[in-house]
Structure formats: C-alpha cells, structure tokens
Design a protein around this nucleic acid. Structure first.
Length: 802
DNA sequence: AGCACGCCGACT
DNA sequence: GTCGGCGTGCTC
C-alpha cells in the first residue's frame, strides 16, 4: 500500500510533522515527492495545500485520501526537499514555511469558501448577501460580523452547503500559436494551385514552407510578416492547414536588448583568482573562496569568467547580489555576457514575472541566475558555482522566519553539488575574514585597481567646527565649495545621507520631549508629504503638535536630517542646481530606481542625493565627487557592529568617486573625526581595520570569537513574558557550559508592538554541542498557548543584538 | 490556522 | 430553556 507523507500548510508547532494520506487509484501513477497536493484537514471539511515529501506503506491513523494533485511535475526536487529539512532545523522554523520561502510567492495557496444555497430562500438579507445568485465565494475575514453570523445560521439550519476552495495563483500567461499540419509536398502543390491574388494565403504557405515544424506565436508572426493576419491564420486552421494551440508566454522583465560584451583580459591577480576557482569547478570540489578586492579591482570580471567556466563544464551558476545593487548596470553586465541563459530574480519584478523566471530556471532553460537573497533557492540543477557579491551585506540575512543567513545556505548547496562558493567583498565581514585566516576559506586578494587607477583622495571634515559657521546643518563650506567646482567643470556629484538606524523625529527643544507611538512605544517619524507623524511599526498616524504636550512650549519642531531637507538646503545654497533624490519615498514605485539612475546617468542632473542605497554598485564615469553628509549616525547605534558597518559603508561609497579617467575626491563629514573606523575608511585600509576590530571583539567576547543566538519572547501579558524569560534563563544555565554567557533578559529595542511585549536574551558561546536540542526543548515546553500565552522566536547569529 | 466542542452567563 | 461568548484540543 503506497501512502503519501504530506507537510500541510498550517504553520504551528503541533502540525510541523508529516501527515499521512492515502492515494486514490487515479492519482497513483502521477503523484511524486515535491508536488503540491490538496488534502482534507480537520473535521470541518476544510481543504488545504500540502507538499508531498515522500511515501510510506503503513500508518497507525485512519487515513483520508488526497483530494487532488496541483502540479504536473514536482516543484521541489530532492535536493531542495533535503535543504528545507535542514533549514527548518537550523533556523528553528516550520518545514512548511521553509518550503514556501523556497518557491515563488504565487505558488502559495490562497483559500476561500463557497456557500451554496440548497433551495431558494426569500429572505431579503440572504438575497443581498448572495447577490441573487445561488452561491457565494468569499474570504471569511473579508465578511462583516453580521454576514458571518448569517452564514453560520444558514449552515446550522441546513439551508446551505459550504465547500472549501484552494486556489493556485500560479498561472502562466498563455498566447495563441500555431504549427503546420501540411507536408512540404502539399504546400508546394497548394502554392501553385492558389491564385497569387490571395496574398494572405500565399504568404502563409511560404511561411509554412520555411518552417515546416515548430510552434509559432500568432502575435509575433503577424507583427513581422506583411499580409499575414490572424484572420488568415484562423481560415487556414479551419481548412486544416495548421493547428492552433496555446503556448506559455514568458513575461520578460528585461525587454530592451542588451549589448553583447566579451571577456576582458585579466591582470595577474584576477587571473590567479579565476584559476583557483576554476580548478574547484573542474574537479567537482566544494571549497569556499573569499575574494577580497578593493573597489574597482575587477571582481565582476572574475565572477563572469568563473561562471563561463561552469557553463563550459555543462553546469549552472548562481550569483547573488544585495538587492540594492541589482541595478540595471549589473543586469546589463551579466545578460550582455550570457544572453538568454540568464534569469534575474529580484523584488522589483511582479509576482508573475518572478514565477516565469522561476519556470525558466526549473525547466532548465536558464542556466545562470542573478538575484537577491531569496534567489539562493533558485531551482538550478547541477550547480557549478555559487557567488555572493558584497558578502558582508546585511541584506543577506533574512530578518523574519525562516531567519536564514544566505551564506550558510550557499555553503549547504555548495557541499551538495560539490562546487565552489565564492564570497566577494572589498570589506569582508569579520566572520568570513577570520575564517580565511584560519584557512577554512581560501583567501584570494585583488589589492590593485584595474588599469592602475588611483584611489580617490578622501578628506575628513570636522563638523564640530563647521556647525558654528552658518545655519545649515547638512553642508560644510569645504563640501559646498567642492560641489560648486564640479558644477563649473560639468562633472557630477554623489551625496549620501547616512540613515542607518536613523529617523526624522520631532523634538521639543525646550524640554526634550519626543512624541511616541501609543501602541509601540517608539519615536514617531516625521513625514513631510502628509505633514504628520507616523509609526513605522504599526502605521499609527497623528498630526504634529503645535505646542509641546509636556511643557507647553512652542519650540517643538522637526529635528534631524532627511533627504528632502538636505535637498531643499542644497537648493538654497546653490540656486539652479539639479538634484536627483533617491530614497525610500522616491524609489517605492516599480521601476523608479532604474528611472532615477538613468536620469542621473544621462547627465541631466548635477547631483545624486540619497541614502545608503546609492553606496553600492553604481558606476558613473562622470562622478568625481562623493560627499557623506553625516558619517556618524551609524556609529551611534548601540550595536557592537556599528564600527564595522560604518567602515564598510564609507569604504564603499568612497569607491563611487573617480571610476573612469578622472580622479575622484571624497568628503566625509563627521563629529567624530578621530574614530578609527572613519580614519581607516579614509585610507581604504581594510586589513588594518580588520586587525584592530578583531582585537576589540576579542576583548569584549563578541563574534567572531563567540557565536550568538538571540531568543525573543513576546506576550500580551508583560509579567508572564518576564517570568518566563527568567525561568528559561535558569533552564539554560543548567544545560549550557559555564563559559557560555547569557545576556539579559532585557526589553527588546522595540518594547511593545501591537500590544505585545517583547523581551530578549542573547546567548554567547564558543562550543555548545547540545544547543540545538536545548533550544528545541525550550520551544516545545515554554511556548504554551501561543494565542494568549507566550510566543518564542529564536534567531541564530542575529545581525544585531537590538 | 480554523474548526468543533464544551462550558458559562444572559436573553426571547 | 437556547443563543452565542470564549477557552481548549485536535487535525493524517
């Protein structure tokens, strides 16, 4: 007896195990592991989606049969099934959540219910709800309580039947196409027999003669062939000349053709790096390479040539980049080199486009994938290389469940396929660089810029002195002079406003009062457009108070530096200056990012002003000046990695200046001109920074000397949360070694969100072989009654401790 | 998650 | 008496 093991779409602790179902005879030969199925679940007749993960031949339960199979071929292959298991275990998340994050969002089922009247009912309320129809399809939570009650009553009285629907959103756009049915000899005969006045038919027959086999999209053929129209094709179909059918249309997110580019000649450092990586590809060897290259050292070319090697070997390649640097420029590079073999996955695509790109990968038509974080799950088979560009970037860590670190998943897949993983960065994370020192990773260095380009000159401007000079808060006179000089020379300027961990808020300059969210207890953010205060966590909005609610003073006003304010201020200092502003507000719309960059790249604007998002991957030859308006904000964060972040950001943004022939200049404005992170970023001295920072981390018992796990508990009941945390800490202390450090429990940085209280503990350890079991035990035993009790989440290796 | 079941108070 | 509120337990 063949029975299916199914992971059901119910993300809870109790249902996080395979459920066994019987397989109806009709599905027996179609059903395979990795397919999605629809199964009955529970005693209310509910139907839900599930994933078949395997088969078994016996079960102690009374089994229900699988209702339907949703896929023709498996959507998750054996490798990804195994990966989902590992991922669920190591990130303390549900198997179903892992499976779902590995797939395009459209493959997640949407649920609806349908109520069908068993006989006509003459109640006006019922008629209104059913819109005079016999059945109503609805989402329960979209109905008003009254409507829900009405349906409940009708059901109780046996007047309606309720069925459950599982909707598959994954749909491909289909277009009309045709294929020839005529043998060549017959076409030749017809061409002679038909009058040449039938222009359409003759043209069609000639087309069929040229293309005796194959399927052609009607829209495309009629567009490029004169005299050939859809009516001609329809007529021909009736005559039996050709067969009409539907084919999938791939929604291609990059319509404009890209210019082909060719491999560059490598310098000796690049050559050495490519050689090393290639040997791992050729020898089917898992190895992690850390490619440490200064900005402008030609890392991209190393990646491209390594990918090329993998393709030559008949393998596939996966290249990950931070979301923000997945710019049209980067896409042009890869598409230009590998053409239609490339699939792109990033958040700018519509869900339909993402699904189509996923299909191209799944079917084997795309062999090179470039994408942001979640692309690490791209269904490539026979991987030959995995590349992570800017490996230190924090966007590689998923911040909600499953809280995976892309680097770990990359290594897992690299081991599975016996292929190299290349981590590239100008400023590697200390974790990775330390592993290279210990020879766990192979260090490959590119210490020179290509074509012996000089590094830009970096000036540090002491803002403590500047603040006295004038009323502006964003621009030192040195930076303003430098900007004016570029305008005169018709060169361009990039200005960055460091907004990491920073928000614009309103403060009373008399008493220091800051308006906070009544639900979440965090500072409200000032919004220029709506002229109101908003909570970033829950969306609460309120007007700006005219007088301080605490002291009554009228000196309550907007404080801090936003990009809008920086833009206005610069326009005041330099009238007529053309600025392209890039921040969350201006880039939220689809395609806006590319449009703004194009606007700047075309030379229309003098200045590109933006937040961190401009620091990465941009390459404009006419930019000779980069200004960092406030280097400090990221230094102020209560986070042990703030120096590392600041160093990385400043180094990266400095690399934006002078990438072509013209020499670049950088101004870093700061209130902490002597800070080592700022000083060493000025010198672009990563190795020195690494040594100093490692000493500090060692002294303070921080990563990479220690591993860390953050445990967060939340509850509506504040005292319950505190008490549980205390008892969890006690339990941990009995189970873990005495050298392990437990910080907290302490209120989280966001103490309260949506009426729930958050508390956290951080476990710092060097060696804890039983940590996995210990934490599993805590999840199973302390998380009692998620609804009103305590909810626990665990984040292994959190990116920050806040 | 979402459903049924069961226990309790308050309504025609 | 029963309607409907919420707390609890279970789903192959």
């Amino acid at each position: 007896m063949k029975l299916a093991q199914v992971i059901v779409d119910v993300p809870t602790m109790q249902t996080d195990v395979p459920f066994t179902y019987s397989i109806p005879q009709s599905l027996l030969d179609r059903i395979k592991p990795g397919m999605r199925v629809i199964v009955p679940f529970g005693n209310g007749g509910r139907k839900i989606q599930g994933f078949v993960i395997g088969f078994t031949d016996h079960s102690k339960y009374r089994l229900k049969p699988i209702s339907a199979v949703m896929d023709l071929t498996p959507v998750v292959d054996d490798e990804l099934l195994q990966l989902s298991k590992w991922l669920a275990k190591t990130t303390f998340s549900f198997r179903i959540s892992c499976l779902q994050t590995m797939l395009p969002s459209v493959m997640k089922a949407k649920y609806a219910k349908r109520a069908t009247l068993l006989k006509p009912i003459n109640d006006p309320k019922v008629k209104q709800l059913f819109d005079h129809q016999a059945s109503l399809t609805y989402r329960p939570n979209k109905l008003t309580p009254d409507q829900q009650a009405l349906i409940y009553q009708l059901r109780q009285r046996g007047l309606i039947k309720v069925t459950y629907l599982v909707k598959n959103q994954a749909r491909s756009e289909m277009v009309n196409a045709f294929t020839s049915r005529l043998p060549v000899a017959r076409i030749k005969y017809l061409l002679k027999a038909i009058s040449t006045r039938n222009v359409g038919q003759v043209t069609l027959l000639r087309f069929l003669l040229e293309h005796p086999t194959g399927t052609y999209k009607i829209a495309e053929v009629t567009k490029y062939r004169q005299h050939l129209s859809s009516s001609v094709i329809n007529q021909a179909a009736k005559k039996g000349w050709l067969k009409k059918l539907k084919v999938r249309k791939y929604r291609n997110p990059y319509k404009q053709p890209v210019k082909k580019n060719h491999p560059f000649k490598l310098n000796s450092d690049q050559w050495h790096a490519v050689n090393q990586i290639d040997s791992s590809i050729v020898n089917d060897q898992f190895a992690v390479y850390l490619l440490e290259g200064v900005t402008g050292s030609g890392k991209t070319e190393v990646y491209l040539q390594a990918i090329s090697k993998a393709l030559q070997q008949g393998k596939t390649a996966l290249m990950l980049v931070p979301e923000i640097s997945l710019t049209p420029q980067m896409v042009t590079w890869v598409k230009g080199r590998f053409g239609d073999l490339v699939a792109i996955l990033h958040s700018g695509l519509s869900s339909g486009e993402k699904y189509d790109e996923w299909q191209r990968i799944q079917s084997g038509n795309a062999k090179v994938v470039v994408g942001a974080r979640s692309a690490i799950f791209a269904p490539l088979k026979n991987l030959g290389i995995i590349i992570m560009d800017e490996e230190h970037d924090t966007s590689y860590k998923q911040e909600d469940t499953p809280r995976y670190q892309t680097r770990s998943v990359a290594k897992w897949r690299g081991k599975y396929y016996h292929c190299p993983v290349v981590l590239g960065s100008a400023t590697p994370s200390l974790e990775s660089r330390a592993r290279a020192t210990k020879h766990v990773y192979h260090l490959l260095r590119l210490p020179h810029r290509i074509n012996h380009q000089a590094l830009p000159t970096v000036h540090i401007v002491d803002m403590r002195k500047e603040i006295m000079k004038h009323h502006g808060i964003n621009y030192s006179s040195a930076l303003l002079d430098a900007i004016k000089l570029r305008l005169k020379r018709h060169e361009q300027v990039v200005l960055m406003l460091n907004r990491r961990g920073y928000s614009n808020f309103v403060m009373c300059r008399n008493c220091g009062y800051v308006p906070k969210c009544p639900n979440c207890d965090i500072s409200l953010t000032f919004h220029w457009h709506s002229h109101s205060l908003r909570c970033h966590y829950c969306g609460h909005e309120e007007p700006i108070p005219r007088t301080c609610p605490k002291c009554g003073s009228r000196k309550i006003r907007y404080l801090g530096t936003g990009t809008e304010q920086a833009e206005l201020e610069l326009k005041r200092f330099i009238p007529g200056i053309k600025i392209v502003r890039m921040d969350v507000d201006t880039t939220s719309r689809k395609g806006a990012h590319a449009r703004l960059l194009h606007e700047f790249g075309s030379g229309y604007a003098n200045v590109l002003l933006g937040t961190q998002m401009i620091a990465k991957g941009l390459d404009f030859p006419n930019v000779t000046l980069v200004g960092v308006l406030n280097a400090d904000t990221s230094l102020m964060l209560p986070d042990f990695r703030s120096e590392e972040r600041t160093f990385q950001l400043l180094t990266q943004v400095s690399g934006r200046a002078g990438r072509a022939k013209k020499k670049g200049e950088v101004f870093i404005q700061t209130f902490n001109p002597d800070n080592y992170a700022i000083r060493l970023a000025q010198q672009q001295n990563y190795e020195r920074f690494y040594l100093i920072e490692m000493t500090r981390r060692h002294a303070l018992n921080y990563p990479p000397y220690y591993y860390s796990v953050r445990l967060t508990a939340s509850s509506k009941n504040r005292r319950l949360a505190i008490a549980s945390m205390a008892s969890i800490k006690q339990y941990l202390q009995t189970r873990l070694s005495p050298q392990t450090i437990i910080l907290g429990p302490a209120p989280s940085a966001i103490t309260r969100i949506k009426q729930r209280y958050y508390f956290q503990m951080v476990i710092k350890y060097k060696h804890e072989p039983n940590l996995q079991e210990t934490l599993d035990y805590i999840l199973n035993h302390y998380q009692i009654g998620v609804r009103n009790g305590l909810f626990i989440s665990i984040d292994p290796n959190p990116v920050n401790f806040m």
